[in-house]
Amino acid sequence: MTQTPHLTGSLEFCLDQLRQQTVIAYPTEAVFGLGCDPDSESAVMALLALKQRPVEKGLILIAADYSQLEPYISDRELSVIQREQMLASWPGPVTWVVPVPPHTPRWLSGRFDSLAIRVTDHPLVQSLCREFGKPLVSTSANLSGAEPCRNVAEVQQQFGAHFPVLHGETGGRNNPSEIRDVISGQLIRQG
C-alpha cells in the first residue's frame, strides 16, 4: 500500500517537516512564527541562520500546555505566587522568562540562565504542539530587517514558494506577545 503524501500547508505536512528537523512557519496570535524541534541542535541552528539571529540571544518556546515546557525550565525555583501569576496569563499572548536547569541546551537559552516560554491560545499551534508531543521554538517569521509576516503569502514572499508553512490565519492581534520576567515581574517587551 502506498502512502499518499500530505497536502502542503496541512497540519500533517508540517508535522512531517518537524519530525525531519526542518524549520516551518505557522500562524501565532499576532504574526507568523518560525519554529522547529527544540531538541534538535541542527534544526535550531538552521532557524538561527535563516533569521540571521545570534545564538547568544536565546529563543522562545511555545507550547500547548505548561507540562510540555516543564522539562526545559526550573519550575522548582518559582514561588507559588510566581507560578500562579504565570499560569493565570495562559493560554494567551504573554511570554514569561523563566530560570532553566543546567541541562537546558545553550542553543535555546543562549547566554542566559533563563528561557522565554509561552502557552499559546492559537488553536492551530496548540494542535501542532499536541500532535508533535512537545513545544516548538518560536520566533517571528521574517528575514533580518524585514517586517514580520502576517499571512501565508508574505511568508512565501520572504522565504520562497516552497517553504513549509502551516496554512491558517493569525489570531488577529496587532503586537507580538508581551514578555515578562517571572522572578522580578519586570515587563521586558510591551504586548
Score class of each variant (00 low, 15 high):
S144A: 13
E41R: 15
L78V: 03
T22M: 13
R111L: 14
S109Q: 12
A63C: 12
Q68R: 07
P101W: 09
I24G: 04
C36G: 06
S127C: 12
C149P: 02
L128Q: 02
F112N: 12
A49Y: 01
G110L: 00
A141W: 06
Q52D: 15
L34H: 03
N151W: 03
I73A: 01
L61I: 07
A116L: 00
A46I: 06
E154A: 14
A43V: 05
D121F: 05
P101S: 12
E147V: 12
L128H: 04
I24Y: 04
I117N: 00
W107F: 15
T104E: 00
G92H: 06
R150M: 05
P93G: 10
K51S: 09
E70C: 14
V155G: 11
E29L: 05
V23E: 06
V31Q: 11
I62L: 14
R150A: 09
T120W: 09
Y26G: 02
D121A: 15
R130V: 10
T120F: 04
A141R: 08
P105Y: 06
V155N: 10
S114D: 01
F132S: 01
V125L: 12
R53A: 07
G133D: 08
E77W: 11
V97S: 11
I24Q: 08
P71C: 00
I62W: 06
M45W: 09
E154Y: 02
G133H: 10
G145I: 07
T139L: 10
L59E: 05
L59C: 06
S138H: 05
N151V: 01
S109I: 03
L61P: 08
I117K: 00
R83V: 04
Q85C: 09
S127G: 15
V44A: 02
V125N: 10
G110M: 07
R150V: 13
E154D: 08
L34I: 00
F132E: 01
I73D: 01
A49H: 13
P27Q: 05
D37R: 06
D37P: 06
L61D: 06
H103C: 09
P54C: 07
V44E: 07
D37M: 05
V98E: 04
